[in-house]
Each structure stands twice: as C-alpha cells, then as structure tokens.
C-alpha cells in the first residue's frame, strides 16, 4: 500500500473471530496531508469489518474535527488499506472461519 502519511494499525490482537475490531490511526507525515490535522495524537476506534466502510469512519473523523474535509480520501484510503490487509490475513490463516 502506498505511504499516505497516515498510519493505521490494529489496536488489539486479531483472532479472526470478531467482526468489529479496534484500530489506531495517527499522522506519521503531516506534510502529505492537504489540511492541517488537529493534533498528532493517535486516534483509537472500533471498526465493523462486515457492516461499515472506511469512508464512513473517515467522514466521522472529519465531522469530529480531527482532519480537514480535503483529506477525506487520504484518511479513507489509509483505513481501507489496513482493512484489506486484515481481511487478507484472516482468509490466509482462518479460511474456514470467514
């Protein structure tokens, strides 16, 4: 996945069972963002792999004032890339469970 300057990681162990999972997002390189992020804290949140989309969360982060509207795509892509990796890994490790 291309480096967007926004890092998204698992905030808990993934055992492949739960559909909702804790993720942690922070800005690694603010120069890659169009707008100025509110502060460079790590934002932890729960994401439902089956029911939600990265764009939902990205929009909520903008509504909450963490990011500027012009960074919606970058934030959504950063979350999407991590979610894709989580799903890919689940397929590999627990194929029957998916």
């Amino acid at each position: 996945a291309e480096d967007t300057g926004v890092r998204v990681e698992l905030a808990e162990e993934d055992h492949g069972r739960k559909s909702s999972i804790a993720l942690r997002l922070w800005v690694e390189d603010p120069k890659k963002l169009k707008g100025k992020p509110k502060d460079n804290g790590a934002i932890e949140f729960t994401f439902d792999l089956e029911k939600e989309t990265p764009d939902d969360v990205a929009q909520e982060m903008i509504d909450s004032g963490f990011f500027h509207e012009s960074d919606l795509k970058i934030v959504a892509k950063s979350i999407r890339d991590r979610v894709a990796l989580i799903l890919w890994r689940r397929e590999r490790i627990w194929p029957r469970m998916q």
Binding site: E28, A42, E44, E60, F66
Partner: peptide, 27 residues
C-alpha cells in the same frame, strides 16, 4: 490522564492518546 474521548453523533467513540515518539517520522 492524557487520553481524551470524542463521541461522534453517529455513536462511534474516538479515543485520542499521544503517539509514542518512536512512531512519528522525523519531522
């Protein structure tokens, strides 16, 4: 504590904590 919590109108909670220095790229 240095954790702050923001709850979005759709109900999702965002918990903000400091990023460990080691995880921030050199500015």
């Amino acid at each position: 504590s240095s954790f702050t919590q923001v709850v979005h109108s759709a109900g999702r909670r965002f918990i903000v904590s400091p990023v460990p220095e080691s995880r921030l790229k050199e500015q």
